[in-house]
Simulated assay, not measured.
Amino acid sequence: MTTETSTETNPIDERKLNDLVGTSLVDLGATVHAALAVIGDELGLYAALDEAGPVTSAELAAETGTAERYVREWLRSQAAGGYVTYDPEADRYRLTPEQAYVLADEESPVFMPGAFQLVASAAKVGPELREAFRTGEGIGWHEHDEDVFHGTERFFGPSYGAYLIDWIESLDGTDAALRAGGRIVDVGCGHGAPTIRMAEAYPESTVVGVDYHEASIAVARERAESAGVADRVEFEVATARGYDGTDYDLVTMFNCFHDMGDPVGVAAHVRETLADDGAWMIVEPYAEDRVEDNLTPFGRLAYSISTVACTPNSLSQDVGYGLGAQAGEERTREVVTEAGFTRFRRAAETKTSLVFEARP
């Protein structure tokens, strides 16, 4: 008896094979690079490189109190990845303005070290995730490493600072209502970056941030004190289906609605707590409605994070809906209208975010 191998029955296309191997090598480099980007951020290597200008590895090591031989290898890896610029004639390294904006400016809306911190830390649940794949059980947000929470704040916080008020202004009449003195509740607030930004922008309004994760609420209160808005923003430990209050002019959810175990139930609770002319602003990762249209670099990132953190978090809760971070506009609309909302539209968007407005 003879058998044929899959290679014999399905001849390999050498070009496609080489392309896939090349992609794998890029991904292998990116995997290691993520860890080194975190080190560069934590040790202040990016910031020092930006401030010092073109430097040798010895000069950067002296500036940061690190060992030259490690710094030399780190700089070469960063230059190979396009994160650092190398001058071979002078044997010096620097950050271009674009590289500095991405890697050294913590106020930049495209500051990426926080994202590396988030992704590298989220991967630490590998053993639990493997077991979850076998059992179908979930992994709660609170079960992740503490750096996941800090990385989330550092990654998303600057973009909220840059775009948040524009997003609110895109809602029908909401900005004017808040400037006159309204009521805001930010659900799933985490460390409170957008909550605090709204308190700063609308001093006449009352702002409440809620999150079920007690440790994050403790950090949010500290952040509010540091920002000088603790007198007009409150933070409460509560779930998205159980937070208190009614007649809110604005309910916000930033990149967390897809994490909810029962998004329909959450949406129903939002509808109950909104004022009759209030608005619910839902910010979600950018996604098209069809899977094939999300097979992009950003889609890969979003689907991957959703596999590691978002979907497991949803599956850890009651109902376990598992909406996922690439649900798209129509799927989100279906969930929101199922809960009783009659108006739903895309109010704004960026390359990485969709901003929806829902009204009773």
Rank of each mutant, 00 (worst) to 15 (best):
P109S: 10
Y83D: 08
R345M: 07
R343D: 15
G265K: 02
G265Q: 05
A279F: 01
A230N: 06
L178E: 03
E214G: 01
A224R: 00
T96K: 04
G53N: 03
I139A: 08
L43T: 11
R223W: 06
T246I: 12
E153T: 04
Y248L: 11
D145A: 08
D50V: 01
P109Y: 11
T174C: 10
A348G: 08
T23F: 13
G324L: 06
G188I: 03
V319I: 11
R271F: 01
V148W: 02
G65I: 07
T239W: 01
E63C: 08
G114L: 13
D211F: 01
R345P: 07
C310G: 09
V119I: 15
R241T: 14
N10W: 13
L95N: 02
E225W: 06
V335P: 01
Y202C: 00
R333Y: 03
A123V: 09
D289K: 00
R134A: 14
E146G: 07
G261E: 08
A120N: 14
Y248N: 09
G209F: 00
P312D: 04
V185Y: 02
S314R: 11
A275P: 06
G209E: 00
M112V: 15
Q99I: 05
S353K: 15
V251E: 04
Y83F: 15
D105L: 04
A132K: 05
E63A: 14
A279H: 09
Q99C: 04
L315V: 08
S170N: 00
L164H: 07
F341P: 03
R76H: 12
E107N: 14
G65D: 05
V21A: 11
A201I: 07
Q117C: 10
G322E: 00
R241C: 08
T350M: 08
A238G: 06
T66M: 12
P203V: 04
A230L: 02
V185R: 04
D147E: 14
A201G: 08
L250G: 02
I165V: 13
L129Q: 09
S24A: 13
G340T: 02
F156A: 12
A327S: 11
A100C: 01
Y70L: 13
R346V: 13
G173T: 10
V32F: 12
A348E: 12
S226C: 04
M260N: 09
A309F: 02
Y202V: 01
A347R: 03
G140T: 06
R290F: 04
G40N: 01
S353A: 14
R154E: 15
A339I: 03
G261T: 09
G190N: 01
Y86W: 13
Q78K: 09
E329P: 03
D277M: 08
V26N: 13
P109A: 12
V119H: 13
Y321L: 07
K351I: 10
E137F: 09
S77K: 07
D293E: 15
